[in-house]
Structures are given as structure tokens and as C-alpha cells.
Design a protein around this nucleic acid. Structure first.
Lengths: 383, 383
DNA sequence: ATGAAAGCGCTAACAT
DNA sequence: ATGTTAGCGCTTTCAT
């Protein structure tokens, strides 16, 4: 019984027909019309290599207990036949999807898309498919994680960016076989990438006080915040703490929502400048907001800087454009946040995929702290 | 023989153990520890509803030939048991993945992430998983589409953004069961979303000539372009065409690469302003570049506008921030590009999923043209 | 309108 | 080190 007994020997109902001859892989060079060939299955490889499918499976996945010679032969045959395991079949049989899902409040905005880019690179390199899903509100999060779970069996792991998850939900995810890593938030016991956001606020306030200012304006926060975003609160608290150290206070009216975009940043700056007693120096909680604020400043003929008559302004992130406009900022490696979270997730799920040798223990059950660096440029210097 | 004869009756090798009792769905309200229950399979639904698995499968997918009463009962039981079909199993059996892949040169930048956001929304709403993959160079495209095809069997359709594909490759995709739609480029016979980029150039040039300028500076293009991006060339040609209409010419030295980001836009503007005979009005091929250019302008104390001593500047896209800085621009609905491409793709693959009734024919084998709108604001007006 | 059963292509016991 | 085989949980003929 070979593979060519096509129309005969149908023992019962239900057979599907498929092109039955496995043609030799077509040369790609010539633009020859590709023969409607069937793709190779593990059985084709097995018979061509003269071994069983189990051995092929083991060899191809670099599992132990395969003779070196066998492994090499199987690999050669698989390459020859251009064999690639069917992901659906292997998912069904193994229960793993080799897919990582990125959950983010939004795809718009520099921060989120940069994080996604960093995570995508790592996942793709590790052989994981990358799925993205926007979670703009808690209602969406509920829809995703509630009883009729939209992640279960569809993904091996979830990276949540700036989305808080209660421990119960996290445990439920684990129950359903979905690993978890977070960025910007943390769930006890799960890998997380966080920066010390209070320290961000402290660094900013310290710098602005250092260059001689007492009335600090803060641009940040979201007016209507469906995701209960904690970062603005923490950074604000840091500012207040640091100011308190110097016997100063943050005026409530000197805090404006900037929505973490250029538009909001510009509007917030205008709003603050229109105050009767405007702040004399400004801290925007992101570079994008700072850019908007800088535009607003320049539009009024004001110059950002610490010289006489100049208005100090600083941001957070070290966006590429910050260098161009010489914006003082607090640098954080945003793409790396995504990359590291992805790496932690994959290591936790399957050390081998992450190039992990299994010798050193997997980190990540403790939130990772990231080094912050104050980058002083012209917008807070005399010039 | 019931479902509880767990440890006995193993007729041969190879059985996997699984928790065998299907517990009643746990109440979510109480924080009760979730019993390690097994998820419902189609068989559970079938036996609970007193029908065969085939009927359940048909009923749940709204296929014909199911009695209404049966359909309702099956749906009720499925909901009761919180049943969700295993995607891997259904992919394996049906050969469809219900996944759409988005291929983009980069995730950074407003345009790309906005397109992705638009596409993601539509796909998610239509019940498709959304996968993203960055294709920053043709080498990456090759790696994706060559003989050992990294898309085959993993996705139902591919949306390519600003990436040119030769007809042969597109046909090969089809052969492998992957549908295709493009944005910003087109392959004959496949759905595509495009704007008339030459018209963009013409509109811009016409507007700047209309307000009295002859020496136009153009900011756009990529210095090192791994993806052979055609948009800058087309827009430039449009500018040249329109200028020719007025007996004018575009000076080669008045064209600078802006890399489609704020940074490049700022640098390009500086470069052009430093010329011995700088242009008197500027067209940036994207709003992001225009923002950078505007910064550069303001940094030199120059004001964007068409009044005396002012420098006209316009962009493309109608980015949210354009309104804030009152940037004249040529509006295109970017998120909608993504949404429409996704819709065309899904309609082409499976009209039902797109909410398509099958009555009207699926469009999309003809590139869709999009309405462009000149939005005049202060940066090209006297004020 | 419904049911029976044959795969889909793999993985993972278990046996050798 | 390798082979045998029973699933994984669906979809889809074909028969009724």
C-alpha cells in the first residue's frame, strides 16, 4: 500500500480527497508555474528517511534519544521535502500554540507601539507568533477574560501593558494555561517590567528645583481614564515627595491632564500658562506631551531653557525626537521593556525557546527594576 | 461504560489522562476556588443536548439543515456548559485558522500604528485573531514567503502595508491558501487600498502656488529605503507635474529626505533653510515630518503662515496634532485604510464573517480610491 | 434533519 | 534509540 492508491480502498464514509502525489519541491529560481503539489507531512518525512513518525518528531524538535546520524538524516530529508509541521496539528496534539498575545490599551501613541515593536522582535525571533489585541477599557478586559474565555487554547502567554490585573484573574489565567507577564503594572508572583515611577517624579522635581524653581507645573494623567492608569498618580506622588523634601508644595491647579499625547500636552501647557500664577517650570510625564507643550511654548514666543526669561521643560522617555529639540528627559528603554517582558514570558513557559540553558534559574517572579537616567539638554539649561 | 472509568480499561499504549468529570460551570460571582474542571468539548455538548456531534457542529456554526428547535437547544446547552470550540482542532479539521496577519515595515510611526489599529478593530470584531509581523526589509519578506513558507497554515489572510509584492509571489500566496490585501501598494487582481499619491503632490503644489509661491521645498522620502517605498516618488512626481502646469520647476536641491518621522522632518527643514537660495514654501509628505519641520522653523524664530515674512508649510494625513498646531494638511482616513483593507480581506475569504449578505458582489479586486481633502489652516494662511 | 465515522497531522505514552 | 498507536477535538462526507 503506497501513497498512490487514491480512489480505491475507501473503507467507510468520510474520506476527504487530496492531491496524493508529493511532487519534488519546485525550484524557486525559475518562474515555473508551481505544480499543485501537496505539502509534506511528517509521514512523508518518516518514510523518506526510513524511520517512524515518532522519531521524526523527536529529531525535528531536538528531543533526546535520537541517534546523531538519524537526526541528521531526518533534518536533511525534512529540508529536502520542505517540510514544516502543521501548527494546528501540533497545537492540538501538544496543547501549545507557540503564540504570544500582546494586550495593550491602544496601538496609538509612541510608547505602546514601541513596546509592541520590542516584544514582537523577541517573540518572532523565538519562533512565536505574535498576536495583538487592544484592551481600551475594563469592559474589554472582562470580555477577554471572563467565563467564555477568549484566550484559552488560543495563546500560550499574555503580555499586558499598563493594564492592572487582580491576582484572582491572574490565577485564573494560569489555570487556563495562559502564562502572564506585565509591563507597567505588576501582579505578585508574575514576571513584570516596571520602572520606579515615583522615582521618575522625584528625579524630575529634583532637577527643576536644582535649577532654581519652586512652582512646578505637571503635565500628565488622563482626564477620563477607563483603565485606571496608575503611572500618572505615582509620578505625581514622586514630585510631591521630592518637593516636600525641599519644603515646597505642588499646587493642585498646577497639574493638568495631558493624555500622554502631543495634543494633550500642548493643551495642558496652554492651560497652565493661562493661569493667574502660572508655574515657572514644567514636567511633562512623557516626551510626546513635552513636544506638544514645547510647541505651545514656542507659539507664544517663549523659549524653553533655564536662562533668564526662559521656561524650563522636561519630559520622560527619551523619544528619538527629544534629541532633536534638545529636550531634557528621563530616559527609559521602552522597546527593551517589551523585549524583556517577552523574554521573561517565554523563559517561564519554555526555557529552551528563549535560548535559556536551564542552568540559571528563571528570573521574573520578582518585578524587574529598570535604570532611569536623567538626560539634561537645552530645555532646562541656560543658552 | 461511563466517562468515569478513569484508571481502568486502557486498551493499549498512548492514552493521555485528563480530568474526567465535567463539573457544572462554576459560579463566577463568588470567589470560590475554581474546581480543576475540564473544559467542555463538543461531545459534552452533544450528549447533554441529546444529539450527535455533527449536529452540534452544524448548529453552532449556523449551517443549514438543523431544526430550529434543535439549534436553540444546542445553543442553550453550549452556553450552559460554557463551551468554546478548540481553535486548534477546528483549524486542523477545517483548514482555516481564523487568523489575519498584518505585515508592516515597522510598528513605529503614527501611520503604521494607526493602520494596524484600524485593521485590528475590524478583525477582532469579525472574530479573527490578529497577528502582526514586522517586515523591515525585502530580506525579511523573502524569509516570510520563500520556500519554507512561514505563513502557510498559520493564517488565512495577509494585509501588507506599504510593501510591494510581485504578482508571482501573490499567486504563490493564493496557492498556499493565504488571501491577500494591500494598503499603499497594489497587486493586480487583489484587493487594495490606495490613495492617488500623485494627486497628493498636485494638491500640495497647487495650494502653495495658489498662495503665491514658486520655489517649493519638499520634505519626504527615505534616505536608505530597504522597502523601495513608492509613495515619496509618486508624491514628488505629482508636485513636479503641477508645477509644470504653472511653468515652474522643482529644484532637485529643494527636496530633502525626511524619513517620515518628526526627527527627519526637522532635520530636512534645517537643511533646506540652510541653502543659499532656500525654498519659500514647504510641503512635507506627512504631518509627522511637518511637526518636526515646524519645530525647526519656530526654533529659528520663523512663523509658519502665508503672511509677510511668514513661511508656508503643509503636511499630509491630518494627524490629530495638526489641528492643535493649525497645520494645513491633506487629509486621508488612515485608520480607515486599515479597517477597509481588513474588511475586504475578510469579505473575500468568508463573506459571512464580514457581515456580508452575499447578495452584493464582493468588491476589492479593483483598488479602492480614497477621497483626499485639503484642510487649510494657519500654517498656510496669513495671520 | 440527523447520525456515524473517517480523517486532519501531529505528540506522547508505552513497549521494545 | 526507535517503533507502535491512541488520542487531541473538531469538520465533513455519506448514509439515513
Amino acid at each position: 500500500m503506497t501513497t498512490s492508491d487514491r480512489e480505491i480502498d475507501r473503507p467507510g464514509p468520510g474520506p476527504r480527497n487530496r492531491p496524493d502525489r508529493l511532487a519534488p519541491a519546485a525550484t524557486t529560481a525559475g518562474g515555473r508555474a508551481p505544480a499543485p503539489r501537496r505539502r509534506a507531512t511528517i509521514e512523508d518525512v518518516a518514510s523518506a528517511a526510513g524511520v517512524s513518525v515518532a522519531t521524526v518528531s523527536r529529531a525535528l524538535r531536538s528531543l533526546p534519544n535520537v541517534a546523531i546520524s538519524t537526526r541528521e538524516r531526518v533534518n536533511a530529508v525534512a529540508a529536502e521535502l520542505d517540510y514544516r509541521p502543521d501548527p494546528a496539528a501540533s497545537r492540538l496534539a501538544a496543547g501549545r500554540t507557540r503564540t504570544v498575545t500582546l494586550g495593550i490599551p491602544s496601538l496609538n501613541g509612541w510608547y505602546f507601539s514601541t513596546v509592541v515593536a520590542g516584544a514582537e522582535a523577541v517573540c518572532t525571533e523565538s519562533g512565536y507568533d505574535v498576536q495583538v489585541i487592544c484592551i481600551p477599557s475594563y469592559a474589554d478586559l472582562d470580555r477577554l477574560l471572563d467565563r467564555s474565555h477568549r484566550l484559552e487554547r488560543r495563546t500560550d502567554g499574555l503580555v499586558l501593558v499598563d493594564i492592572s490585573l487582580d491576582p484572582g484573574r491572574a490565577a485564573d489565567l494560569a489555570t487556563r494555561g495562559v502564562s502572564l507577564a506585565t509591563i507597567g503594572t505588576a501582579v505578585p508572583g508574575y514576571p513584570a517590567i516596571q520602572i520606579d515611577d515615583e522615582e521618575v517624579g522625584r528625579i524630575a522635581a529634583r532637577h527643576l528645583v536644582d535649577i532654581g524653581h519652586e512652582r512646578i507645573g505637571v503635565i500628565g494623567g488622563l482626564p477620563d481614564d477607563p483603565m485606571d492608569f496608575v503611572v500618572p498618580r505615582l509620578r505625581r506622588r514622586g514630585v510631591e515627595d521630592e518637593l516636600a523634601t525641599h519644603g515646597l508644595e505642588l499646587d493642585d491647579r498646577h497639574v493638568a491632564n495631558g493624555n500622554f499625547g502631543m495634543t494633550g500636552g500642548g493643551e495642558a501647557m496652554s492651560e497652565l500658562l493661562d493661569l493667574d500664577d502660572p508655574p515657572t517650570a514644567f514636567f511633562a510625564m512623557s516626551d510626546e506631551m513635552a513636544f506638544g507643550a514645547l510647541m505651545a511654548l514656542r507659539e507664544r514666543g517663549l523659549v524653553a531653557g533655564s536662562g533668564p526669561g526662559q521656561v524650563p521643560l522636561m519630559g520622560v522617555d527619551d523619544h528619538e525626537f527629544a534629541r532633536v529639540v534638545r529636550l531634557t528627559t528621563i530616559r527609559q528603554p521602552v522597546a527593551e521593556h517589551g523585549a524583556r517582558a517577552a523574554r521573561l514570558l517565554i523563559e517561564g513557559m519554555h526555557p529552551h525557546d528563549a535560548g535559556h540553558d536551564g542552568a540559571t534559574p528563571v528570573r521574573g517572579t520578582v518585578p524587574e527594576r529598570v535604570v532611569l537616567e536623567l538626560v539634561v539638554r537645552e530645555t532646562t539649561s541656560p543658552h
